[in-house]
Simulated assay, not measured.
Amino acid sequence: MSKRSFPEVYIVGAGQAVYEKKSERSVQRLLYEASDAALASAGLPWSDVDGLGVACFRLPPDNVTTVAEHFGLAPRFLFHGVYGGASGIVGMLHAARAIQNGDAEVVVVATADSFNVTAHNETVDNFNVSVRDFMSPQGFAGPNGMFALHTRLYMQRTGAREEDFGQFCISLRENALRNPNALFKKPLTMEDYLSAKRIADPLRLFDCVMPCVGGDAVVLASARVAERLSVPKVAILAGGERHNYPADDIYAPYSGWEAYAGQLYERAGVSPGDMDFAQVYDDYPVMSFIQLEGLGICQQGDAFRFVREQDITWRGDFPVNTGGGQLSAGQAGASGGMIGVVEGVLQLRGEGGERQVANARRGVVSGYGMVAYGRGLSTSAAILERVED
């Protein structure tokens, strides 16, 4: 029987800003659009919001406090995510604790970015001191070069083939074709994947996310507020985060989820086999494989076989990234860590449209980010469950 780490907290809304390749919209506007859509789905007005969480690479010199000013809010609780793609889930967990402690009743957690190629490259080159001072001057190939090394290492240690990464990308593209907010609108075949240009060996074009413009948000509310809302509700059974793991191996073929996944499931009162889907951070297929293993969906070093043998599309044996993930919907900077949360909430609310997973009751979502010298430093995860009336 499932248990809830936050019994007095519900996710009551989820929304997105429109994903586009290019846009003149500011990041403040994107954060507002995603938040407004999430509040509309909850049936709540802006006047009820007394907590705000934000993550956005292109926001400085603004921060969450000035965003609250832009929105006309006077919050009791604020969170500013500085963990890259792990920030969305970390912020959601902090918000849940604040509500449970009585420090807020309605919290919007919003992520967004407005990336084009130039903005993306500027951000990557100045991501942190390690990258700025020691890697960019040497002409490193950005995250593509770094995760090409991770991909090669994973292939050498497990026996995974390029076709396995291709199958992952193809499955996510099939999911994206049923998502009106995904950027990629054409089917992807194995021939398309294998014939695409090399970006950083062994990575090909479709292994790499496309920077874009967009935003994602969820609304969390206290039980007192949620009980008066006539909308589907989602519970957070458990959540966790881990940073700089393992501290002594910067190119380890794992990144922290396995350090707390067991506790995550124990606290939730469920097992990996009880999950109906997974929404994992997918900037590159190899990191999705590592998350599927670290979260216990499959055995260590076995994700490539899992993808070979399972149908991971929305209609399949075990759906993964049912909205297409970042690889087929686009990566709106820091919003890459929230796109899967929004998709998970939509699935559990029965609002997945043409990609709706049948009888979706429970799923795991995960985030990853803050790339430094050899890998991303931050991981996060949560187990979500539909609340039965």
Score class of each variant (00 low, 15 high):
Gln156Asn: 13
Thr111Trp: 08
Asn144Ser: 10
Glu122Ile: 11
Ala176Arg: 01
Ser171Glu: 10
Asn116Glu: 14
Asn179Glu: 04
Tyr193Pro: 04
Arg178Ser: 12
Gly166Phe: 11
Val129Lys: 01
Ala119Glu: 14
Cys169Ala: 15
Leu172Tyr: 04
Val131Thr: 07
Arg132Thr: 15
Gln138Met: 15
Val108His: 07
Cys169Pro: 01
Asn126Thr: 11
Gly145Ala: 08
Asn126His: 15
Val117Lys: 03
Thr123Cys: 12
Asn116His: 08
Phe134Trp: 12
Leu149Asn: 01
Val107Asp: 03
Arg178Gln: 14
Tyr154Phe: 13
Ala112Gln: 06
Asn175Arg: 02
Phe147Asp: 02
Val106Gln: 01
Glu122Ala: 11
Asn128Tyr: 11
Asn181Leu: 05
Phe184Ala: 04
Leu177Arg: 01
Arg132Gln: 12
Phe165Asp: 00
Gly166Gln: 07
Val129Trp: 13
Thr151Gln: 07
Phe147Tyr: 15
Thr158Pro: 10
His120Ala: 12
Pro143Thr: 10
Phe134Gly: 06
Asp125His: 09
Gly159Thr: 13
Glu163Ser: 12
Val124Ile: 15
Glu162Cys: 02
Pro187Gly: 05
Thr189Gly: 05
His120Asn: 11
Gly145Asn: 04
Met146Gln: 04
Asp125Trp: 13
Arg161Pro: 02
Val129Ser: 05
Phe168Trp: 09
Asn121Pro: 00
Phe147Ile: 05
Ile170Met: 12
Ile170Asp: 01
Thr123Tyr: 14
Phe147Gln: 00
Gly142Cys: 08
Asp125Ala: 14
Leu183Lys: 00
Leu183Tyr: 06
Asp133Gly: 00
His150Ile: 07
Pro187Met: 08
Val124Lys: 00
Thr158Glu: 10
Asn128Pro: 11
Asp192Met: 04
Lys186Gln: 07
Phe134Pro: 00
Cys169Gln: 02
Gln156Phe: 14
Asp133Met: 11
Thr118Asn: 08
Ser171Trp: 02
Glu191Arg: 10
Ala112Arg: 06
Phe127Arg: 00
Ala119Thr: 13
Glu162His: 06
Glu163Phe: 10
Leu188Gly: 04
Glu163Arg: 09
Gln138Lys: 11
Glu122Trp: 12
Arg161Ile: 01
Met155Trp: 04
